[in-house]
Nucleic acid binder design. Sequence first.
RNA 1: GCCCCCGUAGCUCAGGGGAUAGAGCAUCGGUCUUCUAAACCGAGGGUCGCAGGUUCGAAUCCUGCCGGGGGUACCA
Length: 651
Amino acid sequence: MTSDPLADFDAEIVRFLASTGVPAEIVQLSTPPEPEFGERATNVAFRLAKERRKAPKQIAEEIAAGFDAEGYRFIERAEPAGAGFVNFYLKYTAFIPHAVEAVESAGTAFGRRDDVAVRDVVVEHTSVNPNKEWHIGHARNAVLGDVVARVLRQAGHRVEIQNYVDDTGPQAATSIVGFEDFREPERPGEKFDHWVGRSYVKVSEELRAEPALRKRLEEIEAAPSQVGAGPVDERQSVWARLENVERLKARVVATMRALESGEYGPLVQRILKAQLQTAYRLGVFYDLLTWESNLIESHLFQGAMDRVRQSPKVKQPSEGRYAGALVIETGQPVEGEETKAEVLIRSNGLPTYIGKDIAYHMWKFHLVPNQLCSMPFITQPNGAVLRSTSLHGQEREERVPSQNINIIAVDQSAAQDAVREGLRAAGFGAAADELFHLAYGLVMTSEGKLTGRRGAIAADDVIDEAVRVAYERVKEKRSQDLSDDDMRRIAEAVAVGAVRYFMVQYNPLRDIVFDVSDVVSYDGNTALYVQYALVRMFAILRRAAADAGVTDSEIDDADLSLLSHNQERRLIFQLSLLPGVVADTSRTLGVNLVAEYAFNLATVFSQFYRDCTVLSADADLRAARLRLVRSVRDVLAVACDLLGVPVIERL
RNA sequence: GCCCCCGUAGCUCAGGGGAUAGAGCAUCGGUCUUCUAAACCGAGGGUCGCAGGUUCGAAUCCUGCCGGGGGUACCA
């Protein structure tokens, strides 16, 4: 059984073109803009025009004239069109059973081609500082990464999803200082990450005020005459605040050191576990948590830095702006200027994120001796165990990933480049080439950047709002036989679908404008539209069994040759596009293709639903249509699963 | 200043050499005693930021300009 029915059609087209003397290398196939142009088109006539010294149109005519349907299973006819296209038309009588049987035999694995070259891929996503609740940008990261991983797995690759926990960085330390020294009162029912986050915000705002305070102090000291006009003690209060800032900075540094040795572990884990609740609610799960503190404690970081030091680009200057720090030069040397560099180890001896990330990637690619083990951390709501790096425990499998995909926001592109530079400096150029950064765009509001520390919208709040609106609409729509529990479950599924769909429907590389009202609109091109189409399919199949008494074996044995309606053909063609979408997406990581695919399939189904009644058709046709609907349901469910959009059976 | 990304319908966005540039929302007008209308059908709405260039063919590639965002920290 074939795994990609449409590829069989394409292969016949290539074979036919070869028989007319067109080399396979130059054949490009596309889907024509209008249905009347057939299912596939090729532009080979344009490409051959110069070489053959003929008009494209004439070449296209000659190619099409040479077509004889004899000997081809899926090509009905070939026609010249436009200025030089050759259009190919599917022979649906043969293709419909071919496609339906492919879907039926593949089941949930539909989309995987059997000629796939299986890769081991590490996908790193989320990697949120354990200091504060997720904002909406983190949700974009997690959902994008999750969908990328799902698509790669569907394509047949082996994927390990890692979530890196920067538990020794300034953000985590600031949060702990805030929680220890300036704890905010807990609000009833508040998630722990939100609670701690409020202390973090307070402290980090004070730390960020430093430049402004210093400037103010300068102003006061430059114009002492004006001091008398204002509050007499302003100079003193600015001084006091600056002293406080210095104290805080010292506390943060001390806390970073404490974090490196694993102190505060329980507190950091508590923050992380609260954050993970948001992931789980969105249906995002992980395979491995990599703890930064483990990289330090295991001396893996030290080993990586020793390796990097061998590069002439890595230096420890004794003077200049980088005095005392370990840096890697990333810019070109400019006469009279200090060469641009990234700091790997600060002059106070503490590693930077970039330094630690270089070490992490050496470990990811198995380039340095492994000194980390793993142990179970938590069982996730999907039943899968989330493992955690550790100093003792189970040894790592010696399966070297051929590729690393990092889902990290575009504003960290320079840092990711530096990591790649670091790998090259250590002599690991091949690994650097296989480190792919999916630089997804920022989430903005109409007022501007939102993924910053201020004005951030909490992901939990957005989900809650989406659930609230969904619940209201479920309730007003139907009293039906749905219990309140059912309605709440549906509302949650609708809301999660809405949030996830919002995150994947756009090209990942683009900045997007976030508006809660778009997420909860539930009209048009949304997850609910897709879920609703599925609800209709489930209803048809349910009623066929319950009201009409149609059995599964009747559907299994249905005569597919009865399917000849244009809408039925369009559905079949749409179904058969999925393997191509999976393959393209796993190559380009443009996950919006999957959302677009799901929407298109749902749209074609809606049109079929309008024009072709299933239940009131004659028994034989009814059985054939039920078999078609069942396949559409299964394929659309696969697409939903790739998107992580929950499938619901009734609304 | 330098580096990267982006300017497509009123709004939010697809399309990244190929046929008449698409979708959703919004606006206006039609379809429910339904296979559950959170749906379907139709209408209006575009010098694809501007100017050159490459090509049989440019929204798409190249150059310049204009506008927006990000980076350019011993933050991540």
